[in-house]
Amino acid sequence: MNTRINTVHFDADAKLIDHVNKRLDKLPVFHDRITGVEVYLKLDNIAHQIKDKIAEIKVYVPHHQFFVKHESKSFEESFDLAFDSLVTRMKRQKEKVQQN
């Protein structure tokens, strides 16, 4: 599984990268054919000084791609919300495939 973490408009510290990697290490439990994962962590400061933190996760599996995006006031929270949503989607897709 190839993993790529991209940061946009900032430099991530080691603690944030470790947090992301620890969560991503759990992905093979939910789908055994993952070929790649891309994570985008972005700072968004539209119109105001308040900077929202956006986390986007793309997971590539044969014949399918999962994409989730969440936004909150911290990168950890944004990533955790996106990861939980991703896991839910992957479980749903796996159940749908097993029913057919």
Rank of each mutant, 00 (worst) to 15 (best):
D13H: 09
D18I: 01
N100T: 14
H64Q: 14
S74W: 01
I17Y: 03
Q65Y: 05
N2L: 10
M90Q: 02
T3N: 07
V29L: 15
E77Y: 07
K53G: 06
M1S: 09
V61H: 06
E95D: 14
D13G: 08
H31T: 09
K15W: 04
R4S: 12
I17Q: 06
F75I: 01
Q93W: 13
K26W: 00
V61K: 03
L86M: 07
T88R: 14
N21C: 04
L81N: 07
P28W: 10
D25H: 11
V29G: 11
D18Y: 05
T7V: 04
E56Q: 11
V68M: 11
V37L: 05
V68F: 05
V68H: 07
A82G: 13
R89N: 10
F10D: 14
M1K: 06
S72F: 03
G36V: 06
H31L: 10
P62L: 09
S85K: 15
D32F: 10
D11K: 15
R92M: 12
S72A: 11
Q49C: 08
R33M: 14
N21A: 07
V20F: 03
K58P: 01
G36M: 04
D52Y: 04
T88F: 09
H48D: 12
D18G: 07
V20H: 02
T7C: 09
A12D: 04
D25L: 12
L16Y: 03
A14I: 14
L43D: 15
H9K: 15
S85P: 02
L41Y: 02
R92G: 12
R89I: 03
E76K: 14
L27M: 10
H9L: 10
E56M: 01
R4A: 14
V59S: 03
D11Q: 13
P28N: 12
P62G: 08
N21R: 11
S72Q: 03
V20W: 00
K26M: 05
H19D: 05
F83Q: 01
H31W: 07
K15P: 00
I17S: 05
H31Y: 09
K51T: 14
Q65I: 12
D32V: 08
D84E: 13
S74N: 09
